[in-house]
Every structure is written in C-alpha cells, then in structure tokens.
C-alpha cells in the first residue's frame, strides 16, 4: 500500500477530488441559499435526480451538454417550485415536504426516461462535456492539471463560493436576505418582502440543485440510471451543517467529502484487493464520523424550518 502514494496517484486523487466535490459544492450552496431564507430543503436528492434526467435528456437530444446542464437547472427550479408553494404558501412542514420531493421527483425522472427510451432499453450514452483547460495556468506542473483542467462548470462552482460570501457579507440584499432566515417578522416590519425572498431562495436553490444533478449526467457519467444521485443531496446537506452555514466552510466540507469519494474511486481503480463495496462505504462513513466529531449541536439561521405567515399573531 505504501507504494501507491506516488506523485501520479496523488495528482490523480486531487484531480478526482475537485471533480467529485463539484456537485456536492453546488448543491450545498443551493441549500445554503435556501436555509439562509429559513427554508430547510431536504429534497435536494430528488431535485438532483430530476435535474440529472433533464440534463441527460436534453444533452442527448441536442448533442450539447451545455444546453443539457442549463435545462437541468431549470428542471430543478420547476421541481422546487412545488416545494416552495407548499411550504411557503401552505406552511407545510419543510422536512416532510422535502421528503415528498425526494419520493416524487425521482419517480417523474424515471417515468420520463422510460417513456422516452422505452421500457426495456439498454444503457444509452450522451455526449459528455469536455474540459476547458485554462491557458497558461493549466501548464503549471502538477497544480495546473489538478486545478485548471476542468469543465467550465467546475470553475463556476468554485467561483460561487466567493460570490456567495460577498453576497451575504457585503451587500445590502444579502443582509436583508439573511434577516429573513433569522427573524422574518423583524424583516417584514422593516419592509423586506419575506415571502418574495423565500421564493427567490427557492428559485436559486432549485437552479443550483438541478445544476448539480445535471452535472452528474453531463460532466461525470455519460448515462442516466435511477439512483445516479446516490445520496449526494444528503451529503450536501451535511456539508452545509459541517461548513457552519458559511460559504468557505461549505467549500472545505465539500472538498473533504469529495476527497473521500475520490479516494475510494482511486483505490477501486488500483485494484488493491479490497472489495469495492467496502471501499464505497468510505464517503458515507466519513460523513458520519466528520459530523459526529465536529458537527455539534444546532447552529444556523434562527427561523430555519419554521413556517411564516404574514398575519401571524
């Protein structure tokens, strides 16, 4: 085992980490936008599943993975609007409704796939997005390949982190947005439109979660199958908690989870003799251990998960 830790292995591992962390990062930031407005959305897995189907389908039909990616994002918005209307307007319990989305969205995705490709189709592949190496930077030895030779969506994902940080910490809109998740009644009394903010949050969340799902089928695997998301939505949820609701923290958490995923994949490829099922447990077990050791007690927006009614007493 000691011999595998050579330069190629490590650079492959890091490259893979960046790639694996990307969907988790995007979706965790989706959740961050949702929770900052007081909406806990545990339906991420479902939104991702739908996004991955739409992304795959559009990419397959048009041959253009970029179109697929964006279509996936808009698919995410569409699904999340169901969640938004029910939790914001009807005050449905957010956890319960998130669960409903987790059941509902994959069912639709699977249905559409079967309708389009027939009941008993073999695996169908679509075009994957090609990496876009950044000139000059990608030629730096080791680092260049790890950091600057990715699909554009990867750059975008990492760009989201500082953008989100600036939004929440430096802009007026971000401050107002935060107030909605902390103390909606106070926000309302200051003329901030709580309901609208929550809808905006749901749109952003749906867009990004759909994008994260579509990433899987347009940039990562060239096929769609049920269960392609395999719990990444929940890992993203953990990343938000572990990242303490701060963009930087979320990035670190996503990288950590990406690393464990990359590690198990690399080890599988190396054929180290370990059964792949045991290796595949690593990311899930790591998530558990990380949360158990660091993710102590509640934090995050105060009014998180609570319904808000305008004429509440």
């Amino acid at each position: 085992m000691t011999t595998i830790w050579n330069a190629t292995f490590i650079s492959e591992l890091l490259l893979s980490m960046i790639r694996m962390a990307t969907p988790i990062l995007i979706v965790a930031i989706a959740e961050l936008y949702s929770e900052k407005a007081g909406l806990v959305n545990i339906g991420l897995d479902g939104i991702m599943a739908f996004g991955s189907l739409v992304g795959f389908l559009v990419s397959y039909i048009t041959g253009n993975p970029y179109l697929g990616l964006f279509a996936g994002a808009f698919g995410g918005i569409a699904i999340n609007m169901v969640y938004a209307v029910c939790t914001i307007q009807l005050g449905a319990e957010q956890i319960v409704y998130g669960m409903a989305i987790n059941i509902f969205a994959p069912a639709i995705a699977s249905f559409i796939y079967k309708i389009y490709f027939g009941i008993s189709s073999s695996l169908i592949s679509a075009q994957l997005m090609k990496p876009l190496p950044i000139p000059v930077l990608s030629h730096i030895p080791y680092v260049g390949d790890v950091l600057f030779n990715h699909t554009p969506i990867v750059y975008l994902a990492y760009l989201l982190v500082p953008l989100t940080y600036v939004f929440f910490n430096k802009t007026r809109a971000g401050l107002n947005y935060t107030a909605v998740g902390e103390y909606p009644k106070a926000a309302e009394s200051l003329g901030i439109n709580v309901i609208r903010t929550k809808y905006i949050a749901s749109i952003i969340c749906g867009f990004l979660a759909g994008l994260g799902g579509a990433y899987l089928t347009t940039c990562y695997i060239s096929t769609y199958s049920d269960g392609v998301v395999s719990g990444r939505g929940f890992i993203a949820l953990s990343a938000v908690i572990f990242g303490r609701w701060a963009p930087g923290g979320v990035l670190l958490a996503a990288l950590l989870f990406g690393f464990t995923d990359a590690l198990q994949l690399r080890l599988q490829v190396l054929n180290s003799g370990m059964p792949y099922q045991l290796l595949a447990m690593i990311p899930y077990l790591c998530t558990l251990f990380v949360l158990a050791f660091f993710g102590i007690k509640k934090a995050g927006p105060k009014a998180n998960g609570k319904p808000y009614f305008k004429e509440e007493r």
């Binding site: 401050l175 107002n176 107030a179 902390e182 103390y183 106070a186 926000a187 927006p301 105060k302």
Partner: peptide
C-alpha cells in the same frame, strides 16, 4: 432585532 447581527447591521437592515 436580529440577534445574529451587529447593532450597525440591524440599523441599516432593509
């Protein structure tokens, strides 16, 4: 008042 924020942030909120 939003407890997670400072005095300044609360004053300029909205």
């Amino acid at each position: 008042l939003v407890e997670a924020m400072t005095v300044f942030e609360n004053i300029i909120l909205g």
